[in-house]
Simulated scan of single mutants.
Amino acid sequence: MTERQVRQVTDSRVLAAMSHPLRRRLLDVLAVYGPQPVGALAERTGQAPANISHHMKVLRDCGLVEEAPERARDKRERWWRPVSAGLRWSGRDFADDPAESAVLQAAESLNLDRQVALVREWYAAGDDEQAVWGESAFAADRWLHLTPEELAELNREILAVFDRWSARDAPDGPERRPVFVFAHGVPAQP
């Protein structure tokens, strides 16, 4: 199998499709657990299989997922897999059209909401969870004085660390589980 690349999203319709909260979650489930049948996606998200099928077709029509028929046990079972290893986009690709710019702003807001919600879930986790993972989970932030070029360099370095950790072969284990890590570097004022 060839290595999947990170997809550069330049179409606002694709950005809108992947920004829907359930579709974003479905993409996350596929990224974490690999190809899944509709039934497993429904169980993992607490949704009806018919609803999952609808959203998977929307994602397919945008080229974000594809069927994995070789995994199906029969013709009724539908398996899905992500087409790319990840997604990225640039505001420059949507700046010339006010409608596309509005889609971009909504997508970025929904994306940030999803990221913050995952962190909030961790902080709301029970004492047992906190006892096991509390010393390992982290939050880090710094105020830096950077040029745009230096921020771009920092971005490349952070993505390289993420890529190295996500590409490594790690056997499943009793204490190994999905961990969400994210970073933002934006100009701001304290």
Rank of each mutant, 00 (worst) to 15 (best):
F180N: 07
V116I: 15
A72H: 08
D113E: 13
A16W: 01
T10D: 10
L87I: 07
G39E: 08
S53L: 13
E70F: 07
G46H: 13
E153L: 05
N155C: 08
A124Y: 09
G63H: 00
V186S: 14
V14R: 11
D28S: 12
D74P: 03
K75N: 11
P98W: 00
P171A: 15
Q105K: 06
D74Y: 06
A124P: 00
F138E: 00
A139I: 03
E129G: 07
R78C: 05
N155L: 06
L112E: 05
L151V: 07
I52R: 01
A152I: 03
D113H: 14
A102V: 10
H145C: 07
H54P: 01
P171F: 05
L118G: 08
R71P: 07
P174N: 03
L151T: 13
A50R: 04
D28R: 13
R142M: 08
P35S: 12
L159M: 03
T45K: 05
L41Q: 11
D163Q: 15
A50M: 06
S166N: 06
F182Y: 10
V103N: 06
W79Q: 10
F182G: 11
E77T: 15
P190L: 02
K75F: 09
Y33E: 12
D97N: 15
A117Q: 09
L22N: 03
Q8M: 12
R73Y: 05
E157P: 06
R88S: 04
R73H: 13
P21M: 05
A102I: 10
S166M: 03
E67N: 14
R88N: 04
A42Y: 10
N51V: 11
D28P: 01
L112V: 04
G63K: 02
I52W: 00
V65N: 06
V9I: 15
P37I: 06
V132Q: 03
D74R: 01
V38A: 11
Q5P: 04
